[in-house]
Structure formats: structure tokens, C-alpha cells
């Protein structure tokens, strides 16, 4: 029990530390979007597996993605202290980072971590996310340790997303 308590405190500290870093970078208004191929994204996610990961695949030009994006912002805010991390994986084009992606993040005051996935070998990496994914966006990937879950399509409301996260937390 003490061990669990220690772990939770440790995670909270870690979250706060990361939050502090994030807000620091926002204050400097120099948003830096890491660009990764799928292997790099996978390696990065592996370092984050000590929490429930909620990874949303989206793009600024994808209307249903943009419509549901604020649910992920809410989740990031509401579950931040419950060992849940929301990552927005953008499939925008690399050349659009400065002209579209960063202005979008600024305009909408996006607080979630944003990573740009730049990997044309889609036929190989889509199945590595989930064999159930057809490739249509939006799509959301939940990783809880060694288990993962994929939801293709848009969340109609915040409750739907929230319920999924809450159910996964119960495991």
C-alpha cells in the first residue's frame, strides 16, 4: 500500500514537472512540434507507458477531428492528476507546421502535447497501431501498459471519451 502511495505521489510530481515545462514553453510562445516517424513515436510512447496514454490521431484540415479535439483538451485537464496523458498526434503535412499547425494550436490554446507523425509507410504503421484501424481519421489509441485499445471515428460528446478513460482506469 505504501508502495502504491509512493508511486502515485511520484507520478503526480512527474506530471506537475511536465506541466511546469509545458507552461514555460507556452509563455515563451515558441511552440516546438516534434516531428517523428512511427518508430520514433513508438519509442517515445514506450518511455511514457507508466501512465494511461490517450493518443488521438488528427489533422487541422480534418473537420470531424477538429470538432472532437476539445474533448481531448477536457480529458487532459480533468485526468491530468490521475496518471493519464493525452497526446495529439497530428497527421498534418510537415510543410504546414508553421503556417497551419502552430497557428491552430495558438488560436485554440491547445494544452495537450502535440507530435507530428511524418511517415509515408502507412501500410506498415497503421496495423502496428491496430489491425482494426482502416486508416480513416480521427482515431484514438489507448495504451495501458501492455494493453491497447483503438477507437475509429469521432466521439460525439465528452462523456463518451470520459467513460472510456474511466473504464480503463478501473482495470
Amino acid at each position: 500500500m505504501t508502495k502504491v502511495g509512493f508511486f502515485i505521489v511520484f507520478m503526480l510530481e512527474l506530471c506537475q514537472l511536465m506541466t511546469a515545462q509545458e507552461s514555460a514553453s507556452v509563455e515563451q510562445s515558441s511552440i516546438d512540434i516534434p516531428v517523428m516517424n512511427f518508430d520514433e513515436l513508438q519509442s517515445y510512447l514506450n518511455t511514457q507507458k507508466n501512465q494511461l496514454l490517450v493518443i488521438n490521431f488528427w489533422a487541422t484540415w480534418c473537420a470531424p477531428c477538429v470538432e472532437e479535439l476539445h474533448y481531448f483538451e477536457y480529458a487532459n485537464r480533468d485526468f491530468k492528476e490521475q496518471n493519464v496523458k493525452v497526446i495529439l498526434v497530428s497527421l498534418d503535412f510537415k510543410r504546414a507546421i508553421d503556417k497551419q499547425l502552430i497557428p491552430f494550436i495558438e488560436r485554440n490554446e491547445i494544452q495537450c502535447e502535440v507530435i507530428l507523425l511524418d511517415d509515408v509507410k502507412m501500410n506498415s504503421w497503421i496495423n502496428r497501431v491496430s489491425p482494426k484501424w482502416s486508416g480513416a481519421i480521427p482515431g484514438t489509441w489507448f495504451i495501458d501498459g501492455e494493453n491497447s485499445l483503438f477507437n475509429e471515428g469521432k466521439y460525439e460528446n465528452y462523456d463518451a471519451l470520459k467513460n472510456t478513460i474511466t473504464n480503463l482506469q478501473k482495470i
Partner: peptide
């Protein structure tokens, strides 16, 4: 072969 491949695309509206 392959008879099926995947790619990212826009969901059908």
C-alpha cells in the same frame, strides 16, 4: 499480393 493495404485517409462524411 498484397491483396489488402492500408493508408491514412479522410473519414467518409
Amino acid at each position: 499480393d498484397p491483396s489488402e493495404t492500408k493508408a491514412i485517409g479522410c473519414s467518409i462524411k
